[in-house]
Computed example of a mutant assay.
Amino acid sequence: MGTVNEEYIALNEELVATNEHLRRAEENLIRLNKKLKEKEESLRLSIEAARMGTFNLNVKTGIIEVNNYCRELFGFSDDLVISIDEGFGTLTEDRDRIWDAMHYAIRNRTLFEEEYRVFRKSDNAMRWLRAVGKVSDPAMGTDQHFYGTMIDITERKANDQLKEDFIGIVSHEMRSPLTALKGYVQILDWKSKKSEDLFTAEVTAKAIRQVNRMTTLITGFLDVARAGEGKIYLNKTSFDLNNVIKIVEEETLTTISSHKIMFRPVEQTMVLADQDKLEQVLLNFINNAAKYSPNNSRIYVTCNTGNGWVRVSVKDEGMGISVKDQMHIFERFYRVIGAKTENISGFGIGLYLCKEIIDGHAGRIGVESSDGGGSTFWFELPIAPLSETNY
């Protein structure tokens, strides 16, 4: 009997201990649940304050759950059950592109990040939206979901269009007087050489060089407008890329005296490209390197080949670029904002044009940098096959 009582007492103590353990676990769950609700509420308030729409597509059923602001963006009524067909029904010209991009992101589990136009159901007004989304983790064991956020970028798009229109109009208006000015300077240059007036000949040569630079700048402005319409023109010919390096070297030695520019030897490399446009890209890289690095520092220009590609790089010893800014550095009108750059002028179109030019050559462009550790801007082009260099 004593043994049974002892076992009963031990069992009772074990049950008391288990109940205490469960009580503490329940308290922890309640506390964690409370924190989770607080964080959810904080996230909801942040999304509302940022005027951000949220969406959650059940891939199996095709039903999309959205917040109130998302309904407002698309013009959906409060009681409408939104299907994927309803959502895509507001897209017109961008429908196929966004449909393909979404399914690619779902199929390959990559980030969906797109800008597109919608026509609101309520008033048929056109709005530009930017959406970012991803597919849910299958390890969660529930139906597959595609979820994310979106913002209204209509005002930003309108501002970009105004900038492009202004650039296009001003550039066209400036070309005629600049062409006339160049003609007068060339006449003066011809007369000074004929009369052997060396001083005037030297001055006019410098003036012609500056007029040419201004012409290049205006052409760049016009290219911005053309690139926005997908109409940037490339005059592709077969040539040795070494010629571009040499021309740019001569140009920078004349125009940049604040830095030591080191051009590494380049072997013959034939490419099928627009020579003037590649000069423009390389000059932009070098001018930026000089603009964003200390005086008397070094700038290295290299050209290497491998696996059927040629890479041209410009490395500086400047302030560097943060990872955040690197993601947007080639976007139109984007400029790095900070205390170190507030006194540096620019329009935010140079690198955008460089990317458009290299993309037009089926090439690649990029930057390697760290904040405070200098930057290396590079572009790559396919080397022209022999069959394309013999004409």
Score class of each variant (00 low, 15 high):
residue 4 V to T: 10
residue 9 I to P: 01
residue 11 L to D: 08
residue 11 L to A: 09
residue 12 N to K: 14
residue 13 E to R: 15
residue 21 H to K: 13
residue 22 L to S: 00
residue 24 R to H: 10
residue 27 E to T: 09
residue 34 K to V: 03
residue 41 E to K: 11
residue 46 S to C: 11
residue 54 T to K: 00
residue 59 V to W: 03
residue 69 Y to R: 04
residue 75 G to Y: 05
residue 79 D to K: 11
residue 83 S to N: 08
residue 84 I to P: 04
residue 85 D to V: 11
residue 93 E to S: 05
residue 94 D to Y: 03
residue 103 H to Q: 14
residue 109 R to W: 11
residue 110 T to R: 09
residue 112 F to S: 08
residue 113 E to V: 00
residue 115 E to H: 03
residue 116 Y to P: 01
residue 120 R to C: 09
residue 122 S to W: 01
residue 127 R to I: 13
residue 130 R to Q: 12
residue 133 G to P: 03
residue 134 K to W: 02
residue 141 G to S: 05
residue 148 G to Q: 08
residue 151 I to C: 02
residue 154 T to Y: 07
residue 167 I to P: 01
residue 168 G to W: 04
residue 174 M to R: 07
residue 174 M to L: 13
residue 178 L to W: 02
residue 179 T to E: 13
residue 184 Y to Q: 08
residue 185 V to S: 05
residue 188 L to Y: 09
residue 191 K to Q: 15
residue 198 L to W: 06
residue 200 T to D: 00
residue 200 T to W: 03
residue 207 A to C: 12
residue 216 T to E: 12
residue 216 T to M: 04
residue 218 I to N: 15
residue 219 T to Q: 15
residue 234 L to G: 06
residue 240 D to M: 09
residue 241 L to A: 10
residue 243 N to L: 12
residue 244 V to M: 08
residue 250 E to Q: 13
residue 260 K to Q: 12
residue 262 M to I: 15
residue 268 Q to R: 03
residue 269 T to W: 01
residue 277 K to F: 06
residue 278 L to V: 06
residue 281 V to K: 01
residue 282 L to A: 04
residue 283 L to T: 12
residue 285 F to I: 05
residue 287 N to K: 11
residue 288 N to G: 14
residue 289 A to L: 12
residue 290 A to T: 10
residue 294 P to H: 05
residue 296 N to E: 14
residue 300 Y to D: 08
residue 301 V to I: 15
residue 307 N to T: 07
residue 309 W to K: 11
residue 314 V to C: 15
residue 316 D to R: 09
residue 323 V to R: 04
residue 323 V to A: 13
residue 330 F to H: 07
residue 333 F to K: 00
residue 337 I to R: 08
residue 346 G to V: 02
residue 351 L to R: 00
residue 358 I to C: 07
residue 359 D to H: 09
residue 361 H to S: 06
residue 362 A to N: 15
residue 364 R to N: 08
residue 365 I to S: 12
residue 367 V to P: 01
residue 385 P to E: 06
residue 386 L to K: 06
residue 388 E to K: 14
residue 388 E to Q: 11
